[in-house]
Computed example of a mutant assay.
Amino acid sequence: MSLATTLSKNDQFVLSTILGGGEGPAIEFSNPNKRKIVVDVEMQPDRHIKEVEPLVEMEKTAIKLIENQKDYERASAILDSIIKQEPNYASAYNNRAQLKRLLISNDANEESQFNSIIDDLEKAIKLAEPEGKNSGLDIIVSKMQATLLQNAYTQLGAIYIKMAGIPANADRAWNFEEKASQMLYRAGEYGSELAKELSSKVNPYAKLCGNMVQEALAREQRNLYQ
Rank of each mutant, 00 (worst) to 15 (best):
S116G: 14
V202E: 13
L127N: 00
D40T: 05
M163F: 01
N175M: 11
E197I: 15
N31I: 14
K50N: 13
R172T: 06
Y153E: 05
D138Q: 07
K64A: 09
K60W: 08
M144K: 08
P130Y: 10
I82Y: 02
Q155S: 13
I125P: 07
V38T: 10
R74G: 03
I49V: 15
C209H: 12
R172V: 04
R222W: 03
A206E: 08
M183H: 05
E131V: 00
T6I: 12
M144I: 07
F29E: 10
L149K: 03
V39N: 05
A108N: 14
S199W: 07
G24Q: 15
K201S: 10
P45V: 07
P32A: 15
D119S: 06
S8H: 01
E110T: 00
I82R: 00
Y89E: 00
A62V: 12
I117N: 01
K100C: 05
S135T: 03
A152Q: 07
A75L: 12
A218L: 02
L3H: 05
N223P: 00
I82P: 00
M163Q: 06
Y72P: 02
L7Y: 05
P130H: 04
R96G: 02
G210L: 03
V41C: 09
K50T: 06
L127I: 02
E178K: 14
R172M: 06
E215H: 12
I104T: 13
Q98M: 11
N203L: 11
A97E: 02
Q150F: 14
W174D: 06
L137M: 12
W174L: 11
S181F: 08
N68V: 08
M1E: 12
E23T: 08
P130N: 08
E177G: 08
N33W: 15
F114D: 02
G188A: 05
M212W: 04
A75C: 01
P87V: 01
E215Y: 04
R186Q: 11
V52G: 13
G191M: 03
V213W: 05
A146G: 02
S116K: 13
A77I: 10
N211Q: 03
L65E: 06
Y185W: 07
L15N: 10
L3K: 10
I63H: 11
E110W: 12
P87L: 00
E28R: 15
E28N: 15
S116T: 05
A26M: 15
A164K: 12
L65H: 01
Y72R: 06
N33T: 09
Q44V: 04
K34G: 13
I125E: 08
S91E: 08
E178W: 15
K9G: 01
A158Q: 10
Q12H: 03
K64Q: 10
A206V: 12
G210Y: 07
K36I: 01
R96T: 01
Q98K: 14
S81N: 10
Y153V: 07
R47M: 03
A218Y: 04
A90P: 02
I159Y: 01
G188I: 12
N109D: 09
A152Y: 06
R101S: 05
N10T: 02
H48W: 07
A4I: 14
Y72N: 05
L137T: 09
L194H: 14
I125D: 04
E23C: 10
E189N: 11
S112D: 01
E110G: 14
N10I: 09
D80K: 06
I37M: 12
N94V: 00
N223D: 07
Y160N: 10
L224I: 02
N94S: 12
V14M: 13
L55I: 06
R186E: 04
